[in-house]
């Protein structure tokens, strides 16, 4: 029974071009950046390794920036760090949000009311603002990991709201009553009966959260609140903008992070749409 269900999902995944194209591109970019980091030594993205502001040449395929760092090496490193932030923030945000939302929806009552108001506040305020306050306070000490944690502070609210609604509808279904009648404890019901219904949804949410974390990181970094001692795609843009790479005509500095971000966003979006089609075949988006 279970294996046929899994098989059905697998066959749906097989037929979904969007899912594949998106997943492949996202994975491919990461793969290239890993390989690239092995080939280009880490000194390449240190200050003063090369002559500053070199256009692309045979040694530096994407040229160097105003501080004499190799852009391609920075880009590889930046992709990995941006992915890392996306991964940590999306994982923690989804788990924390799902847990809070589940407790709120399943148990209801006073806890539910309190959590609901807090979620309301976080959902209605543009999340970048709270993050600006926090990041500005610890500016100077922001690392890639703290950046991910900072983003987590706000990105749990959306999954919390979604899971709450699901938990509220699930707990009224017949199979839950049946398992209660058959003497299962509430923990057992949650883990064995309800969790499996959430997993698919959590997967789709994860992709979405990953996308928005990468986006938020870029936004915070462009404002000058990004990690100082490491490079992400957003930090690369920040440097390029602060040294006015655009008006020095250094297209090889500003374009690599910008184009990479666009490709990553687009393929994550396609991946998300594909996943959505697999999970809810009825909803059809563009």
């Amino acid at each position: 029974m279970k294996s046929t269900k899994i098989y059905r999902h697998l066959s749906k995944i097989k037929g979904n071009k969007k899912f594949f194209a998106g997943a492949f591109t996202v994975a491919f970019i990461y793969f290239i950046s890993i390989i690239g980091s092995f080939i280009l030594p880490s000194e390449y993205y240190r200050t003063g390794s090369f002559e500053p502001a070199l256009p692309p040449n045979t040694k530096n395929f994407m040229g160097t920036d105003c501080l004499g760092r190799d852009i391609l090496a920075q880009l590889f490193r930046g992709i990995q760090n941006s992915y890392k932030i996306g991964f940590i923030a999306a994982t923690l945000g989804t788990i924390i949000g799902a847990t809070i939302g589940f407790i709120s929806g399943y148990y209801g009552g006073f806890i539910d009311k309190v959590i609901n108001v807090i979620v309301d506040v976080f959902l209605s305020v543009p999340s970048l603002l709270f993050l600006i306050l926090i990041a500005a306070l610890i500016s100077g000490g922001v690392t890639v990991e703290t950046m991910a944690l900072i983003i987590c502070i706000t990105n749990w609210s959306w999954p919390a709201r979604q899971v709450r609604a699901q938990a509220m509808s699930l707990k009224r279904r017949e199979f839950v009553y049946l398992s209660k009648l058959s003497g299962m404890g509430s923990m057992e019901i949650i883990v064995k009966e309800l969790m499996p219904h959430m997993f698919q949804w959590m997967g789709a949410n994860f992709i979405n959260a990953f996308l928005s974390a990468v986006l938020t990181e870029a936004g915070l970094s462009i404002l000058g609140l990004g990690p100082q001692r490491d490079v992400t795609l957003g930090v690369m843009i920040y440097w390029a903008l602060s040294y006015s790479a655009i008006f020095r005509g250094m297209w090889w500095w500003i374009f690599p992070p910008v184009v990479t971000l666009i490709i990553v966003f687009f393929s994550l979006y396609i991946l998300h749409v594909g996943l959505d089609e697999i999970i809810n075949p009825k909803s059809k988006k563009v």
């Binding site: 870029a218 655009i246 008006f247 666009i262 979006y269």
Partner: peptide, 23 residues
Amino acid sequence: FALLLYVIPYYIFAILLLFFFSY
């Protein structure tokens, strides 16, 4: 085209505009 514009964040698009139409 609309989908592409929807997915690109506005500030990334702003950088592109700045490069092409100003510089």
